[in-house]
């Protein structure tokens, strides 16, 4: 079957819309072999290997997805060029971090044209770790419900995907899970620390 061709506008619209449309659009971007090879070549030429290249492509996709959903991608560059810039930025940033902790030579900052500079919120590993622990405390089922909700799946879709008897049951479950999450966060001793950053 021929894969659907998307324009940049369609990709952005589908990812912003969430649900299944987002996944289809992300897969279409993911399937661009040339782009993956470019990222892999860049990483390989900058002290990385094939696995690093794939990891950076995946991490870049994650940032792209989030930036589009949060409206931070303003369409000033082609989607795939923007993704390539993100991957470059992430890899150079990782090299710089390694350079501070090992004998790897100091890595120069990559200069990008302004319109290609991706807006990337880099979270500390420590903060990420705490957030992940909070998520795990919630339990798998509630995680699934809240993730689908965050990705704009309708209550009908959530009910169907997760086997609820009706959208109303899914809505109630989402509410319960959301309240539980906030309670878990509230009762965590490190929350003050997280909120103050």
């Amino acid at each position: 079957m021929k894969k659907p061709d998307f324009t940049d506008e369609q990709l952005v619209a589908a990812i912003s819309a969430g649900g299944q449309a987002r996944e289809t659009a992300l897969k279409a971007i993911y399937d661009d072999g040339d782009l993956k090879r470019m990222v892999a070549a860049f990483v390989r030429n900058h002290q990385g290997n094939a696995t690093d290249g794939q990891d950076m492509f995946h991490e870049g996709m994650i940032v792209l997805d989030r930036n589009i959903r949060e409206g931070k991608f303003r369409g000033e560059a082609p989607v795939k060029g923007y993704l390539y810039s993100i991957c470059r930025f992430l890899w150079m940033n990782q090299l710089r971090k390694q350079a501070h902790t090992s004998s790897v030579a100091e890595v120069p900052i990559a200069h990008e044209p302004d319109h290609l500079t991706p807006e990337i919120a880099l979270m500390t590993e420590e903060r990420k770790g705490v957030l992940n622990r909070l998520l795990k405390e919630l339990g798998e089922r509630c995680q699934q419900i809240l993730e689908l909700w965050k990705l704009s799946y309708s209550m009908e879709e959530i009910a169907e995907t997760l086997g609820f008897s009706s959208p109303d049951m899914a809505r109630k479950a989402k509410y319960r899970c959301h309240v539980s999450l906030l309670e878990i966060i509230r009762n965590n001793p490190h929350v003050e620390q997280l909120l103050s950053r």
């Binding site: 965050k150 999450l181 906030l182």
Partner: peptide, 24 residues
């Protein structure tokens, strides 16, 4: 709390996408 909760959920969204890409 709600905003922090959104960040927590986003971590899950990212983890799911990461896992999906590993499958791809």
């Amino acid at each position: 709390l709600y905003r922090l909760g959104q960040e927590v959920i986003e971590q899950g969204v990212e983890a799911s996408l990461r896992s999906k890409m590993q499958g791809w």
